[in-house]
């Protein structure tokens, strides 16, 4: 009986759907306005992820205000959404379409191949070097910024032990690990770096447990490149003595999560990159088919201005920074 009831009810679905077509079928799609329009698709992190998606959106909003381009952003709910979301913008004839995050490394070439008249940009991937002629790949020297974070940690640690929490074992996160470890070693050869991975980007409880184990094991400074997992690091460090235990944030200035305990944050200026590239595209000076790599030199990565690093240590960080910019030090990326 109940079976039939439910089954019958479902027949209704198709009816309603058919009705719906009648009601809404003729609605014209919204199209882009203005001379130059930009679309931005986030990965599954969403627009306000307090990470690179949010930063990218800040750049987009700056472009809207400063150089008067029409902008629109769209969140992706699943990895499968990347292609349709990019396609939607392409069909709206938007001039430049962003895919934010390395997860777009298959979707961007696919859609770019389909819509040859649109320009595309991807953040955090060089597409394995095979960049189509209507795509620009924007990458960051995360290892350089992480190196400076490592120098700050190596010079500040009292226990000669620091920690690193990675999100998932992937080449992108390894860049952060490699740069940080190299920085610590350069600044303080006696210091050791304990590296752990959460195999997650969202489990804050895991982040807190890992941070607890690292601090209990003797580390006094922990850096993370682990998205939401890193929130747990700040929760843990906040429960400890200020001035003795430190956390280092990533992507954006994270000091608000634990103001007294945040040594500094490694900032990745996705906003600057999105703005610059968008501006170039509007002015017609953008070189397509290439990789644009933002490092310390271009202020694409660096440490946050808001920091608790002591002035002496800061001076040394600055020295290392100049050496990297001049090319005297090459920072490993894996």
């Amino acid at each position: 009986m109940q079976m039939k009831r439910l089954l019958g009810s479902l027949v209704a679905v198709s009816l309603v759907a058919t009705l719906a077509v009648g009601c809404g079928g003729n609605k014209s799609k919204e199209t882009a306005k203005g001379d130059f329009s930009v679309g931005l698709v986030t990965d599954t992190g969403g627009l306000n992820d307090e990470s690179f998606n949010q930063s990218a959106n800040m750049g987009l909003q700056k472009a809207k205000n400063d150089i008067k381009v029409d902008v629109k952003a769209q969140e992706s709910k699943k990895d499968d959404d990347y292609v349709p979301n990019l396609t939607r913008f392409a069909k709206d004839k938007r001039n430049l379409i962003w895919g934010v995050g390395f997860k777009f490394d298959k979707a961007i070439p696919d859609v770019a191949g389909e819509f040859k008249d649109s320009k595309f940009a991807i953040v955090d991937s060089n597409l394995g070097g095979k960049i189509p002629s209507n795509v620009v790949a924007v990458t960051f020297k995360d290892e350089e910024g992480s190196f400076l974070a490592g120098v700050a940690a190596g010079k500040t640690t009292k226990t000669n032990q620091v920690g690193f929490i990675g999100g998932m074992s992937s080449p992108l996160i390894k860049k952060f690990e490699a740069g940080f470890t190299a920085g610590v070693k350069q600044a303080n050869p006696k210091a050791t770096v304990k590296v752990v991975y959460a195999e997650s980007f969202s489990d804050a409880t895991k982040g807190r447990s890992l941070a607890k184990s690292l601090y209990d094991g003797g580390a006094d400074i922990v850096y993370h490149a682990a998205g939401g997992v890193g929130k747990g690091l700040f929760d843990e460090v906040k429960s400890r003595e200020a001035g003795k235990y430190w956390a280092i944030g990533v992507d954006m200035d994270q000091s608000r999560l634990a103001p007294e305990h945040t040594l500094t944050s490694m900032i990745k200026r996705v906003d600057v990159a999105v703005f610059e590239i968008t501006k170039q595209a509007k002015e017609g000076t953008l070189k397509l088919g290439t990789e644009v790599n933002f490092g310390l030199k271009d202020e694409g990565v660096g440490l946050s201005k808001n920091s608790k690093i002591s002035p002496e240590v800061m001076k040394q960080v600055e020295e290392f920074k100049q050496k990297i910019i001049k090319g005297e030090i090459t920072v490993p990326s894996k």
């Binding site: 719906a20 077509v21 009601c23 809404g24 609605k27 799609k29 069909k91």
Partner: peptide
């Protein structure tokens, strides 16, 4: 309106 127009709105 947006929801319905997209479900069967265009071929793609």
């Amino acid at each position: 309106g947006a929801l319905f127009s997209s479900v069967f709105g265009s071929a793609s």
